[in-house]
């Protein structure tokens, strides 16, 4: 009975010694914090953070290439702990949501020609601006929808996309994908928005789309004392640090570019008014 255990132990011992020597020869210094972080991580190697496994993710964290929030599995407690190890402030103050600054679906906006080519906004934008009379407007070829990992963008009509606030995690991927730079991350608790990005003069803007902002300054004038909407380049812009709250101001706008849209409660996008 003794010999088998002795043989096994012997082989084990020899291998162990060999590996000990090899470990010294091929030593690779690892940042001590990486071990500490690795223990906190779930260790499921699910790849949700975009790295090959938890060890890889902790290496990236130490090198500062990734931030704790990337790990979709960790709960808040772990995230805060990771933040402390890295000495980084974690957590978000106010929830943000993506908002598409355009309402120019084909029911209100006009085409300049029939587009025939690659069904992607970025590609269409290269050909005479995509064939929409308003060259600032959404082309509706769903580049943002394709890049949204949370299914938070839907095409509600020809040539216009819309964000579903409840699903949006403000990851910013759609902001980068839109060739017309129409998408902004805005605080979820704001309700009044100028959903237009056309900086042409009033006459040209009206010809291009019925709900375009003409830069008529009516909304700006209602805030004589503390300005909350500023007109710049014939286009009204809401000051999201000091947003307007009184929904009545929306009636002032002749075209409906200034409109109310609640970003914190809806789960399904309502049809355009």
């Amino acid at each position: 009975m003794l010999t088998p255990t002795a043989v096994l132990a012997g082989i084990g011992l020899v291998s162990g010694l060999g590996l000990a020597v090899a470990a010294k020869v091929f030593a690779v210094e690892i940042d001590p914090r990486q071990e500490e972080i690795n223990d906190q991580l779930p260790g499921a190697n699910c790849g949700g953070c975009g790295y090959a496994g938890c060890a890889d993710f902790s290496a990236a964290l130490v090198e500062g290439k990734a931030d704790p929030g990337d790990c979709p599995v960790c709960d808040d407690a772990t995230l805060r702990l990771l933040g402390e190890i890295m000495g980084v402030e974690v957590g978000e103050s106010v929830r943000h949501v993506a908002l598409i600054m355009c309402q120019g679906g084909l029911s209100v906006a006009h085409r300049e020609g029939r587009y025939n080519g690659h069904a992607s906004c970025a590609s269409a934008d290269l050909i005479a601006g995509g064939g929409k009379l308003c060259s600032y407007g959404c082309l509706g070829l769903a580049d943002c929808q394709a890049v949204c990992a949370f299914g938070a963008i839907e095409m509600i009509e020809d040539c216009i996309a819309r964000v579903i606030p409840s699903r949006c995690t403000a990851c910013g991927k759609c902001v980068a994908a839109c060739p017309k730079h129409l998408i902004r991350l805005v605080p979820a608790n704001t309700q009044i928005h100028v959903l237009c990005s056309n900086t042409e003069k009033g006459a040209a803007a009206r010809k291009a789309c019925n709900v375009s902002c003409l830069g008529c300054k009516k909304c700006e004038k209602t805030f004589e004392d503390d300005p909350r909407i500023i007109i710049h380049d014939h286009l009204a812009k809401v000051d999201y640090l000091k947003p307007p709250t009184d929904q009545a101001v929306v009636e002032v706008c002749p075209t409906g570019a200034l409109t109310v849209r609640l970003l914190d409660r809806e789960d399904r996008a309502r049809q355009p008014s």
């Binding site: 300049e112 020609g113 029939r114 025939n116």
Partner: peptide, 11 residues
Amino acid sequence: GPGDFKFIISV
């Protein structure tokens, strides 16, 4: 004039 003529727009 501009706009009211539906050309095909392609590469």
